[in-house]
Design a protein around this nucleic acid. Sequence first.
DNA 1: CGCTTGTTATATAATAAATATAACAAGCGT
DNA 2: ACGCTTGTTATATTTATTATATAACAAGCG
Lengths: 123, 123
Amino acid sequence: MVIEIDFHSDEAIYVQLCNQIILGIVTAQIREGELLPSVRTLAETIGINMHTVNKAYAILQREGFLKIDRRRGAMIAIDIDKLRAIEEARAEMSLVLARAVCKNISRKELHGLLDAICDEWGV
Amino acid sequence: MVIEIDFHSDEAIYVQLCNQIILGIVTAQIREGELLPSVRTLAETIGINMHTVNKAYAILQREGFLKIDRRRGAMIAIDIDKLRAIEEARAEMSLVLARAVCKNISRKELHGLLDAICDEWGV
DNA sequence: CGCTTGTTATATAATAAATATAACAAGCGT
DNA sequence: ACGCTTGTTATATTTATTATATAACAAGCG
């Protein structure tokens, strides 16, 4: 999967990495059981430091998106704690929806947006 | 409206301020046309620096949630650029939804979550 | 004139992010 | 046994961001 980093973004590089890998999973660019590049390889490919990649991988492991085997590397492996996932989704969605609602975006339009995004991913 | 800052959060204080004010608008704790406390007053109430509040207000003004009059203070005034708002909502929602979908939360459940949040706000 | 308003400038401290080296333990392949 | 790669840890340094601290300014109200 291709990873693009915007070095002029106000988002930290490791955050961009996490987001793109998660988007890669949901768009099936990389699937459950597949290996990500090694921290060193990906770091060199992108042109950043090894520890920045390592930080992203460690976070994704803690959040239950991948498992790290010392010798094989980082493998996509979703740990499903659904109750927790729903609570997190609710908290994050509240902030997004609040901004949208303030801007007069209707509940109906938000449902439409949700469908459009899910359609894009074939979910 | 009451503002609560978590000084142990990993979110910057000015970000928490922005989020809470937007949530305050959407829950009608503060309405269009109403004045927020002055930067100095709010800073003292919360126990933080004036510039931190000023930064939050400036950001909310730039994002079109309030207008600042030099002598009157900061007033809730939503600038509706709907096309832009929808694009921003789509980008932010994509990240939230991607995480949720990875955790096996279905499209149906996400619609339910959206409704639950909107219901809470009476939107 | 005194007061408050947002705004700007400058300096400083504290924290976070990113980079740079180096080294370690584990295991694979030859 | 050796060389290689894997993630991991440690340390140091640099840079960027965040937060605080003072100070001053222009604008306007009473």
